[in-house]
Measured scan of single mutants.
Amino acid sequence: MLEGKVKWSNSEKGFGFIEVEGQDDVFVHFSAIQGEGFKTLEEGQAVSFEIVEGNRGPQAANVTKEA
């Protein structure tokens, strides 16, 4: 699992980007967020995730919010 911080997200469009130190930003779709209820990410929020190869390149999977 990698750790990063949410660079920005748009809940209306359903995606955002995660900033990882020393690496390119990672695309995240809201379907990759683990948990119940409305899935949102806040700018600056710490997250853990895996990287998978998506249709348009690397993207985050199994995203969990850190406490």
Rank of each mutant, 00 (worst) to 15 (best):
K13T: 05
E53M: 15
I51P: 01
G16K: 02
E19Y: 11
E36Y: 10
K7T: 05
V6I: 12
I51K: 05
Q59G: 03
F38S: 12
K13F: 09
A60N: 01
T40P: 04
V6A: 01
I18L: 07
N10C: 14
K65L: 14
H29S: 07
E36M: 10
L2F: 13
R56V: 06
T40I: 11
E12I: 13
E36Q: 11
W8I: 01
G54S: 09
A46K: 15
Q23V: 07
V6H: 03
V6N: 01
E21Q: 11
F49S: 00
L2R: 11
E12L: 13
Q59Y: 11
N55P: 15
A46R: 15
K5W: 11
D25H: 04
V47T: 02
Q34F: 08
G4N: 02
V20M: 08
K39G: 09
M1K: 15
D25S: 05
K5Y: 11
S9I: 15
W8K: 00
A46Q: 12
P58G: 04
I51N: 01
L41P: 01
E36W: 10
A61S: 10
K13A: 09
F17W: 08
E43R: 15
E53V: 14
F30S: 02
A61N: 07
E53W: 15
N62W: 08
A60H: 02
I51T: 03
V52K: 08
V52M: 08
P58A: 07
M1V: 13
A60F: 03
V20A: 04
E3V: 15
G4Q: 01
G37K: 08
A61C: 10
E36V: 11
V28Q: 01
N55D: 12
G35L: 05
K65Y: 13
V28I: 07
V47P: 00
E19M: 13
Q23F: 13
V20N: 02
S11W: 13
G14E: 06
N62F: 09
N62S: 08
P58K: 11
T64V: 14
F15G: 02
S31K: 05
E43C: 15
I33A: 04
V26Y: 04
V63Q: 03
V63W: 03
M1Q: 10
Q59L: 07
M1C: 13
G35N: 07
S48Y: 14
K39A: 09
V47F: 03
S48Q: 12
F38R: 11
K39Q: 14
K7D: 00
V6Y: 02
I51L: 11
G35S: 08
E66L: 15
I18K: 00
W8S: 00
